[in-house]
Amino acid sequence: MLISRKPSPFLWAYRAYVLAFFIFLAAPLVAAGTFAFNDSLFPALPWQGFTLDWFFNDTEPKLGMFHDRRLLRGLYYSFVIAGFVAALSVFVGTTNAFLFVRGDFPAKNALYILMIVPLVIPGVILGISILVLASDTANYLERTIDLELEFLRPGIFLVVLGQFSFVTTITSLVITARLKKFDASMEEAALNLGATRARVLRTITLPFLRPAMIAAGIVAFLVSFENFNTTLFLVGSEAPLTITMYDRMAKVGSTPVLNAVSFFLIIGSGALALISILVQRDKTDR
């Protein structure tokens, strides 16, 4: 409507372009998902008929993803890691939001920039730098006081820390944006009605932040779940799903069971993303 009032050839061409873009957007995902249902040993045409074997079959060579122990283990570790990352990053994101919206301290702007920086550091570098520090610390402690700290060696703990290090920037930004919208007179009103500070926080401020905290938590969970670059350097024997899938792809080549996992992840992450959007679009927003 801002280009022209009646559908001109230009507008039709524009629409065709937008349509082409969305086809481009969907094509690889559709390809990755669809071959999960092809009754063939290879994720390729021709179509051999519909099957759910790649999800539920329990015998080789068509071992379904829900019977593939290594994939299931990867899925489990992914859930554990993503759960920890989401919980931690939402907690720190919330304290950061209060710090930067309510707090008053010197160098606030510089520190705020510092909070954003992890988002523009390549994930690979976050991975190696944390690996280096953790290993150096572990080696040093082992050498000097003969203390072996297993959690400083590559493994779940380091993976969680590595992902947490940049996911927290995302959660902080989401929750800060919401807290900025908060009408401070609401807290004063609650105080005025006789509530204690703790009660105001529990009954007024946190409920107001809840949609942002949930949305930030979901995004943190998704980012953690799909993360590869940072995880690659920090992973130990407990490999999360993306690493397991990559290994499978590199060693076995593409098999339809990977399509099954892809389908599962596309649907799962799409649904979670949808929930996070719906949660944030709350009706009580003024």
Binding site: L29, V223, E226, F228, L265, I266, G270, L272
Partner: peptide, 8 residues
Amino acid sequence: PLWVSDLI
């Protein structure tokens, strides 16, 4: 699809 993994 914003958060679908690079791998997929």
